[in-house]
Amino acid sequence: MTERSDKPTRIFIVEDEALLAFEMSDVLEDLGFEVVGPSNHLEDATVTAASSEIDVACLDVNLGEGKTSKPVAEILRDRGIPYVYITAYDAHQITFLQDDDKVVKKPVSGRKLLDALRIVYPHLEKK
């Protein structure tokens, strides 16, 4: 993944709770990032993950109706795009975690969100 210094970092948000998705979007956009999505359904999230220009992603684990963001994470991993899980679950409750996956417990403040993103994507601009 190449860093584009002339354009804002593109952060993909997958969150099934619309209010939380828009709150995260607002925080990130206010800090100068470009938000991709948010996607609140698995089907939309997989299409976006496979076809959009994304630098880093925030993934909710549970997408409702027994669906998880595991397929989205797999697509992102295959594309070399880092991501962080933002969830109400504890890490030990997520059966599909990879050893290097980062999990941040909800609720997340803007600072906590940025800190988590910087762990998986160190190139993130200092805001």
Rank of each mutant, 00 (worst) to 15 (best):
T46D: 08
I13F: 00
P122Y: 14
E125D: 15
P82K: 11
R4I: 15
A49C: 01
F12W: 09
R4N: 15
G64Q: 02
I75N: 06
S109H: 11
G66P: 06
F22T: 03
Y121R: 04
E34N: 04
Y83W: 04
D55I: 00
I54R: 04
M24A: 05
M24W: 08
I75Q: 03
D26I: 10
D90T: 06
D26N: 12
K126M: 15
I54V: 05
V35F: 07
S39M: 05
G66A: 07
G66I: 01
P107N: 13
M1S: 15
T95D: 14
L117E: 07
L59H: 05
F96L: 07
I86G: 07
D90N: 07
S51F: 09
I119S: 11
D78I: 12
C58T: 07
L114I: 13
N62W: 02
S109N: 10
F33V: 01
P82I: 07
C58V: 06
L113Y: 00
A88K: 02
H41C: 06
A49V: 07
D78V: 11
D30H: 13
D6Y: 12
S5V: 09
K126Q: 15
V35D: 06
D26G: 12
T2M: 14
V72W: 05
L63I: 04
E29S: 08
D55M: 09
S69Q: 07
F12E: 04
T2V: 13
A91N: 06
L114A: 09
L124K: 04
I54S: 04
D44E: 14
H92M: 09
D30I: 05
V103T: 08
L19V: 07
L76N: 03
Q98K: 15
L124Y: 11
R79V: 08
Y89D: 14
D78W: 11
T95S: 13
F33Q: 03
Y89L: 15
T95R: 11
P38G: 01
L124H: 03
L97N: 06
N62F: 02
L20H: 02
E74G: 08
K7T: 00
F33N: 08
K106A: 03
D78K: 14
T95V: 12
H92P: 10
E15V: 04
L20K: 01
I11A: 01
I13N: 03
G64P: 09
I54D: 04
K7C: 02
L31R: 13
S52Y: 01
P8L: 09
E3I: 15
V14I: 10
F96G: 00
D99C: 01
L63H: 03
K70Y: 12
T9H: 15
P71H: 05
D100T: 13
F96W: 13
I86A: 08
D99Y: 09
E3T: 15
T48V: 08
R10D: 00
E34C: 02
E65P: 10
V120D: 04
V47N: 13
A21I: 09
P38H: 02
S25F: 01
I119W: 05
V84W: 02
T87M: 03
L117N: 04
K126H: 15
P8I: 02
